[in-house]
């Protein structure tokens, strides 16, 4: 098992910080031992602490599945709702509450299968929120059924002789959507890269979509182990506007390519690389995409008198 070292990244805290790690940590996570969820949880809690996010102003919205237990392990506000429906709920939360930090926690079945329709539109809405797709390529909680991202031929309880359909690439699909503004990919076992990616996503002024390739040691060990062990199996996309890694962090990657995240055509090409060597880093970022949450909040604070005047004006049109 690959464990997360406690000093996996540098944490710079303000001098008189208010919130410690304990302020974000609730129940002990009930994921399996070796599950990638643990490292992601740890990384997110550290981000909250680094950014000193007020727990009462932070909302984690999830769907259903292994990943979606996540909000229960935070000590912020949380919404553990329905399978596939984290996006509409999160968008509803953010629409009239620009003051809240919203995170969406979803899985491959949740986002790319039962909730795929919402995924498409959430990208288009581009509300400021961080979306973490925990992609372990399998339905874990219901005990090993083929997921929309299971590699072709994956043996599962629904396809004992191997899955018969090619998988969806969440990154490729997202890069094809209108108004997409941030798409990144990372893996749960490269802790520094994972954290730098989540941080970059948090700083993005719009919807930041992060696919995290996640280990499921119970059902999919054969699937991810070669990638974890083979240094050639990951390609780091590097750029000064991409995911920041220090020299030490960079040295951990054998294959490195330069990629400008403002170039969506190149981003889509890189997404194709997935077949040979998993590209990680920032595929695409656009700071200027239009944001539906700004539209949603544009008339906040209108006075009661003005509201009544507007209703009366409409009512008067019906007066006889």
């Amino acid at each position: 098992m690959i464990a997360l070292k406690p000093d996996f990244c540098d944490i710079t805290l303000p001098e008189n910080y208010e919130y410690g790690m304990e302020d974000y940590s609730s129940a002990k996570a009930k994921w399996c031992s070796g599950c990638g969820g643990h490292t992601i949880l740890n990384s997110v809690q550290k981000l909250c602490q680094e950014e000193q996010l007020a727990p009462e102003k932070t909302v984690f919205v999830s769907g259903i599945g292994c990943s979606s237990r996540f909000p229960h392990y935070m000590k912020t506000y949380g919404f553990h709702g329905l399978h596939g429906r984290a996006f509409p709920v999160a968008c509803g939360v953010k629409f009239r509450r620009p003051d809240l930090n919203v995170f969406v926690i979803t899985g491959d079945g949740d986002c790319c299968s039962i909730g795929a329709g919402h995924w498409v539109h959430a990208i288009r809405y581009n509300m400021k929120m961080v979306v973490l797709l925990f992609d372990n390529s399998i339905y874990g909680l219901t005990k090993k059924q083929t997921s929309p991202t299971s590699p072709l031929g994956t043996r599962s309880n629904t396809h004992p002789t191997g899955s018969v359909l090619p998988p969806i690439s969440p990154v490729q699909a997202t890069l094809g959507l209108p108004n997409v503004s941030f798409v990144a990919q990372t893996v749960d076992w490269k802790a520094a890269h994972l954290h730098a990616t989540i941080r970059k996503a948090y700083e993005h002024p719009g919807l930041a979509f992060v696919r995290i390739v996640q280990r499921c040691p119970v059902w999919m060990r054969d699937d991810y182990e070669p990638t974890v062990k083979d240094p050639e199996a990951i390609t780091l996309m590097h750029h000064e506007n991409g995911i920041a890694l220090d020299e030490k962090g960079m040295k951990k990657f054998r294959k490195v390519i330069e990629h400008d995240p403002s170039d969506i055509v190149k981003a889509r090409e890189n997404a194709e690389l997935i077949k040979d060597s998993t590209p990680i880093g920032l595929f695409y970022q656009n700071h200027a995409a239009s944001r539906y949450d700004q539209y949603g909040a544009h008339n906040l604070g209108i006075s009661t008198e003005d509201r009544i005047d507007a209703i009366n004006e409409l009512m008067d049109r019906y007066v006889i």
């Binding site: 919404f79 429906r85 509409p88 709920v89 509803g92």
Partner: peptide
């Protein structure tokens, strides 16, 4: 985007 999202969105807003 659909009927399900319509109520989910309303529920999210109400929760907030």
């Amino acid at each position: 985007e659909d009927e399900i999202a319509a109520i989910g969105f309303a529920i999210g807003a109400s929760y907030a």
